[in-house]
């Protein structure tokens, strides 16, 4: 299943990455090489084999829902690239707002 430039661009959009032309070309080449390699899995008959999502012998881990106040809120905000009062600040969400 070879992937072309259009697919690279589509995946980049899904992954929220903006790539330069050189980067796209490199990724197209690398992804095809890696996908070519993982193609070997298709040689295996896995009909009826249960998938493994993790190896733990537990399915759910429940605990009481108890409130534990976190006292260092200012330290969390201190890591924000931009903030106003007690909010994280971001550029406008709607793209047309930025041009007005």
């Amino acid at each position: 299943m070879a992937i072309g430039r259009k697919e690279v661009e589509h995946i980049a959009t899904l992954a929220r990455l903006s790539l330069g032309e050189e980067e796209k070309a490199r990724l197209e080449k690398d992804l095809n090489a890696i996908l070519g390699y993982v193609e070997k899995l298709s040689a295996l008959d896995t009909k009826g084999v249960e998938p493994t999502s993790h190896t733990l012998e537990i399915t759910n881990a429940f605990r009481e829902d108890v409130l534990k106040p976190f006292e260092k809120g200012e330290k969390i905000l201190g890591n924000a690239p931009a903030k106003r009062e007690t909010f994280f600040q971001v550029p406008p969400i709607a793209e047309d707002v930025s041009s007005t």
Binding site: A15, R16, L17, S18, L19, I76, N79, A80, P81, A82, F88, V90, P91, P92, I93, A94, E95, V97, S98, S99
Partner: peptide, 25 residues
Amino acid sequence: YDGVRYGYREASAKALKEMYEKTRS
């Protein structure tokens, strides 16, 4: 890693989606 709550942010972006993409790239 979206540039909102911590870490690096590409500050020149004018809109949110552009900020995500530039920051991550």
